[in-house]
């Protein structure tokens, strides 16, 4: 497990932690049921405040990515992949809606748009 904190970043430290743990869950580096370090231990290792670490974990819990069992510590949630996928889908839908909206205002036909997406897919 790897977490790197930048003190010069404009991004708050708790967000740096959540985004890095999130990424590890999404890429499968962390699996459902895997245990996470304790809040205090992580704070000590990273030389950051306990409250900051706590806040990062609370955010992850709220998003359903992490579960905390009293006395046992925090774990990666069981159904997190589904949740993430669902969330990602929602995000993509939202972005696509924007694109469609803009395309409409410019008079771009659905066929042209599809063609563009296809090209981009092949490029990537």
């Amino acid at each position: 497990m790897r977490i790197i904190i930048s003190n010069s970043s404009q991004e708050p430290i708790y967000k740096q932690i959540t985004s890095q743990i999130k990424k590890m869950i999404m890429t499968g580096e962390l699996n459902p049921g895997d245990s996470l370090p304790s809040i205090r231990n992580l704070a000590r290792e990273l030389h950051i405040s306990v409250i900051t670490t706590k806040r990062a974990f609370e955010d992850l819990e709220r998003e359903g990515l992490v579960e905390t069992v009293a006395g046992k510590g925090s774990f990666v949630s069981q159904y997190n992949r589904e949740i993430i996928k669902e969330k990602k889908m929602e995000m993509i839908e939202e972005k696509l809606a924007n694109i469609v909206q803009e395309s409409k205002s410019l008079g771009i036909s659905p066929q042209v748009l599809q063609e563009m997406i296809k090209l981009l897919y092949e490029e990537g």
Binding site: N7, P12, I13, Y14, A43, R44, H47, I48, S49, V50, I51, T52, R55
Partner: peptide
Amino acid sequence: KIADYITFINNGELVFSETKD
């Protein structure tokens, strides 16, 4: 870096006492 709370006083008066975050 590791402080959870910061209490700041100036001229014998409290400015704030809150979480650092």
